[in-house]
Design a protein around this nucleic acid. Structure first.
Lengths: 140, 140
DNA sequence: AGCTTAGTGAAGATGACTTTCACTCTCACC
DNA sequence: GGTGAGAGTGAAAGTCATCTTCACTAAGCT
């Protein structure tokens, strides 16, 4: 939703680093907070977990990154802000992938009308087997 | 809807009680594990938390109840097995409600084709304000 | 320099979920 | 009516992501 509009916001350098890391991970990659912390630590040893945590919160508030919560996943993941899209979780290897699908606004509107709810957003998650796992790779 | 098909399975009485509680809660109600435990305790004081936990796991395995994980919700909720439908979470009061919507299988198929994933299911969650909260009821 | 606010790291708190362990109950089969 | 194997049980502790607290430091302003 938010156009990535190069914020006029001045970001503390730690937060900037976190943003860089999430953005460099690129579209389609999904980093958990632990992942982000690990990468951040590598580049700036000594940084605290709470700083990373707060950075992710802040960046999310600023609309620069998105927090993705996928049912069945152990933890939330973060990705650069992007067009609305769905996610897929592999029940074999737990990988999370982007899926190019978004609920038509027509559906949102219809559901809102029928239910009386004021619907702000809809999220879609698919699950199944990724290309690898369906090919027979058995995950213990 | 789904006739509760009086399972040929013999259910331990604690598990049966748990099933009763979830089913009595009825379509559209969503109980957390704590809720279920509370109600179970009321009817059979002394029952252990782990028994309720195991009961929910078992009943889910048997397909008699569904576990619903809604992004943003603090904990998972349970509901009687029913037709596929979506859920709505109120960002004001955190209530979870049923929504009569399911992704068309056509969508699942199309996404599967495009992505190469073997898609088993898709879940849809809406969020926004429920009738109460949109009416201005402020939830602390 | 002196003040104020934001940012920081370490550590601990919180709370849902899950597992372990030792004990008890059930029940098919004697 | 026994009885032994396996299922069920309750208490308690473990796991783990997430979030908060606290004492301190850095940065910006006057």
């Amino acid at each position: 939703m938010a156009s990535p509009a190069p914020a006029p916001v001045r970001l503390p350098k730690n937060y900037q680093l976190i943003l860089d890391i999430v953005q460099e991970s690129g579209r389609g990659r999904h980093l958990t907070m632990n992942d982000v912390f690990a990468q951040t630590s590598a580049r700036r040893p000594g940084i605290g977990y709470s700083t990373v945590y707060r950075g992710l919160v802040r960046l999310r508030e600023l609309g620069m990154i998105s927090e993705i919560v996928v049912p069945g996943a152990v933890s939330a993941t973060y990705e650069p802000a992007a067009e609305r899209h769905a996610h897929f979780r592999c029940t074999g290897c737990s990988a999370i992938e982007d899926v190019d699908y978004a609920l038509p606004t027509r559906v949102l509107r219809r559901v809102a009308d029928k239910s009386g709810f004021d619907i702000a957003a809809g999220t879609v998650t698919f699950e199944g087997l990724c290309r690898h796992c369906r090919a027979g790779v058995h995950t213990a």
